[in-house]
Write a protein that binds this DNA or RNA. Sequence first.
DNA 1: CGATGGGTTGAGCGCGCTCAACACCCGTGG
DNA 2: CCACGGGTGTTGAGCGCGCTCAACCCATCG
Lengths: 237, 237
Amino acid sequence: MPPPPDPAVLHGMPLFAGLEADALGDVVGQARSRLVPRGTAVFSQGEPAAAGHALIDGRVKIVQTGPDGQQVVLRFIGPGEMFGTLAIFTDGVYPADAVTVADCVELSWPAAAMTALMERHPAIARNALAIVGGRLREVQNRLREVSTERVERRIAHALLRLVRQAGRRVDAGVEINFPLSRQDVAEMTGSTLHTVSRTLSAWEAQGIVESGRQQVVIRKPHALVAIAEDLPAADRP
Amino acid sequence: MPPPPDPAVLHGMPLFAGLEADALGDVVGQARSRLVPRGTAVFSQGEPAAAGHALIDGRVKIVQTGPDGQQVVLRFIGPGEMFGTLAIFTDGVYPADAVTVADCVELSWPAAAMTALMERHPAIARNALAIVGGRLREVQNRLREVSTERVERRIAHALLRLVRQAGRRVDAGVEINFPLSRQDVAEMTGSTLHTVSRTLSAWEAQGIVESGRQQVVIRKPHALVAIAEDLPAADRP
DNA sequence: CGATGGGTTGAGCGCGCTCAACACCCGTGG
DNA sequence: CCACGGGTGTTGAGCGCGCTCAACCCATCG
């Protein structure tokens, strides 16, 4: 097992917000830290949920696979976020794959330790409820989008969400901070990589984005918002 | 205020499962019961979440409305289920409308009382976490369906879900236990009432369902499963 | 009774999927 | 060094699912 982590890593984690210093020590004491190279599965759909996880650094893609192999990207996890933890409190089986899309550092707590921690520190349960509630909303919004909006708007929404979650200011605009393929965007929007490619090409021609191999930079976020909200594109600089 | 409810009504409510008798008394003491006639809004999207709710009898439709008026049915609530409670623990605003589709009896707890109850009885928080987790999964599954499946399969899935939730055995087959319009099904599946109508007509011709005004009876559930799972329809009785 | 809301069915077409071919980047190994 | 192969991205052609528009029927209700 790698060296026991520094309690400071828990700072800024919503799941452990509002805990006293000694409580944080308790939490860290139960944790196991791990280095996961890019492209590795942290856990897989259908496995028993042996542990809850939190990401310290890197990026993890949560992918659900349907009975016929169709895949959907449910979410990208960034530093400070928990993942694969809810399964412990529902039916004990991971409902999706978690795959690293960059080299990652993660903490994990065995299922039993996680439930015990929640018993000892009720604030964790409260935090978890708020976090899960937020995710439920997000997924409900995506459900509405996929159900009612055209592809172009959905792609715009997806990119804006990623910018909000992992945007980094760069001289050309705002860059999405991790490797992201056309296929990924397609699986986030219920579309195909072909349509995503065409759409991005069109936007590139209009100077709205710059994109390359697993890489997207938004040059005119306001234009993307206009597309997402179906406003008339009232800007031609 | 109507008469204080009988503690027995809490029996079988997952939110309050595992509570001692006196705890249940505490919970009931804070509750307010109300009779809501069919077609009434219990709360509306965007309102501050003043209270958490639980349904004793009847059926409530949870509908989210997008910025351009497009509506999506997120869920139907049946007796024993809570609703509109999560908003208290996230941003304090209801994220959808709750409309009765039958005459209903509901309990509600003022937001402050609900948080206090959770502090006093941590089991409630644990239960809530499990419930919300289950709903998150359900919505994630629907997201996958809408993203990857054709309309016919989605409609089949929607009906099967409703049967599981509100099916009543009847001599012709299984009936969905509350008034359900084509429009409702359309808004559950990201489709239009026209397509739903055509699909149900086709199924009716094949003897799979019987449907009329706000009413659906499934005659051959297995055939519906075959459609939902995209199996060859290997049955011709 | 008209009015309203739910349901059915036809005709047509467009969005976006499907199929297909090719270009490119990069790591790997002969 | 180049050949090779796999992952990624681009672009064209065509067509079909399901939406859109439209007209109509029927039941319920004040």
